[in-house]
Design a protein around this nucleic acid. Structure first.
Lengths: 216, 216
DNA sequence: GTCTATATACCGATAGAC
DNA sequence: GTCTATCGGTATATAGAC
């Protein structure tokens, strides 16, 4: 490992490699990704790619950790700017949805990892996930104690929220085809907008599908 | 294409190949799956594998279509046995959750397809998905007309439900690690039971996370 | 229908010159 | 640090005997 720099600058060769690798790994999967293509997209000679980031598995782990670490900080910041539990929960859902649409590589990498069972994920990446989970868990626990939050299994709710976001944002083009085949193509229009998706997500997760009896 | 039989019997060579292929494709992904391993697991000579099912892409499409067609019929049957929209919605969520735990190959294949954008999915498979989506869409539309269902984008709700189910059922082992890292390993225990997951899923999707003001 | 042996191509990784 | 050339391993797919 020639370069042990854990915090690469924005415009270094390593940064270009990580960006290119995120794109290729997300599109082709780990086994389907070609080191030649990553080097070509990153505009780096293949031998230099190996020189800087190690082998294929080391590169993959750096891609995951780098992206998740960044998102973790952004989500934490968004939550800290809100006061009530309900608004914190909305901020968490909205921020993750925006991150998933603006940088769609990570959700796709995560979907693939889930398909494998996630057994190969390094501890540093699990630690990032646990930090994001703890944010939601704290919101839910505080809300149950001081606000009108119902009781729930926080891990299940976490998986429901991030799962819904990942599938919704990554499933736009498939959703187009499904909606067209079902005869109502117009319902797929909202899948292009992070705002529309976050709005529906907040609405459903906060209030559910059933209307209150009092308001029926 | 030597065998144009579209409805293979239960115990034929083709059935064994499809079962083995579903397992390997789900675990390794399309690019990562090895035709040698599929042949070995199916206890079929590799040349016979190609003789019966065509090449790797044709085998993959047959696996997807076969599994989704089966689930589609099972979900439809479960819904038809219920009367009210609320119970039909519960039946849809519970049945898909049970299918996802008893036959986990399809959810994992779908997660990988979503990661690729689903652009390579053949029309026959999209048609199966559209049929399942139409079931939910009908339940939601009827419920809004005659019961106390809130208005929503049916495609988004569909993606939220199936996304939550796929991530929850496929993310059990990863959930274990995340919960342990977060210091509350006990919340991961429910991820082994389809009943517990379906219960939390029905509860959250039907009623939301917030409690009614009247009951606070 | 069944199997062995192999063609053909590709990919990850590195040696070694500069 | 940079690049070219290439090794070694492995994958899909099939030819051809039985």
């Amino acid at each position: 490992m020639p370069s042990a720099n854990l915090t690469p600058r924005s415009d270094t060769v390593v940064r270009r490699i990580l960006d290119a690798a995120a794109e290729i790994f997300a599109r082709e999967g780990y086994a389907g990704a070609r080191m030649d293509e990553i080097a070509r997209v990153a505009q780096v000679n293949k031998a230099m790619l190996y020189y800087h980031v190690g082998d294929k598995t080391a590169l993959y782990e750096q891609v995951l950790h780098s992206a998740l670490q960044r998102n973790r900080a952004i989500i934490q910041d968004a939550i800290d700017h809100e006061t009530t539990g309900e608004r914190k929960l909305q901020a968490l859902i909205t921020t993750i949805t925006e991150l998933a649409t603006t940088t769609p590589h990570l959700p796709r990498l995560m979907l693939r990892e889930l398909a494998c069972g996630g057994t190969e994920i390094p501890d540093a990446v699990v630690s990032d996930m646990a930090a994001i989970f703890t944010m939601l868990r704290t919101i839910l626990a505080d809300g149950q104690a001081t606000e009108r939050f119902r009781h729930s299994n926080p891990l299940m709710v976490h998986l429901m929220i991030v799962g819904g976001i990942m599938v919704m944002t990554s499933g736009a083009s498939l959703g187009d085809r499904v909606a067209a085949q079902a005869g109502i193509p117009e319902v797929a229009e909202g899948l292009v907008s992070a705002e529309a998706m976050a709005r529906q997500m907040c609405d459903t997760f906060l209030h559910g599908i059933l209307r209150q009896k009092e308001n029926a």
